[in-house]
């Protein structure tokens, strides 16, 4: 199960809407082993594409080092789909390489409705999990 604050969830939606129709991506860092997402970090989509995302490699190095220094890990890795449902695509599954992360998918296909779902992706196996949205 993913437990996330309403404020952090709102930040993901805001980023996804701002970058629509391109896919938006980023992480929420949290203390190692805590499983609690706390620090929101939006990332550049180096592909600037409506159908693909990839973190900019140098920005990723900077952010990953920062997390190392703070004893954090990427608790949530999020990205948006802009014309399809919030479910991992074959591409998402084949590139997922953080077995401990919650992979959050949002969809901006419907301007009036936000979709938010969370998955574990381990060795090519996708498992959807419950999302608990809690106050700050």
């Amino acid at each position: 199960m993913l437990t996330i604050s309403a404020g952090l969830q709102a930040k993901i939606f805001a980023h996804a809407r701002a970058d629509h129709p391109d896919e938006a991506c980023g992480i929420i860092a949290g203390r190692v082993g805590s499983d609690r997402p706390e620090r929101f970090i939006s990332m550049l989509n180096a592909e600037r594409s409506p159908t693909f995302y990839r973190f900019d490699s140098l920005e990723q190095l900077k952010v990953w080092r920062e997390m190392d220094e703070r004893n954090e890990e990427p608790v949530v890795i999020y990205h948006s789909h802009t014309a399809t449902e919030a479910f991992p695509s074959r591409t998402d599954i084949s590139y997922a390489m953080e077995p401990d992360a919650h992979y959050v998918l949002v969809s901006t296909r419907d301007p009036g409705h936000d979709e938010f779902r969370s998955f574990r992706i381990v060795d090519g196996q996708v498992t959807e999990e419950e999302v608990a949205v809690v106050p700050e």
Partner: peptide, 28 residues
């Protein structure tokens, strides 16, 4: 290292090499 010649990039004592899986995906 893609900008330094890839596998041919020269390395020397005291350097740090960091490996990170790219974070990528998408609807396509």
């Amino acid at each position: 290292v893609r900008f330094l010649g890839g596998l041919a990039a020269p390395v020397s004592d005291g350097d740090t090499v960091t490996v990170l899986p790219a974070v990528a995906g998408g609807a396509a």
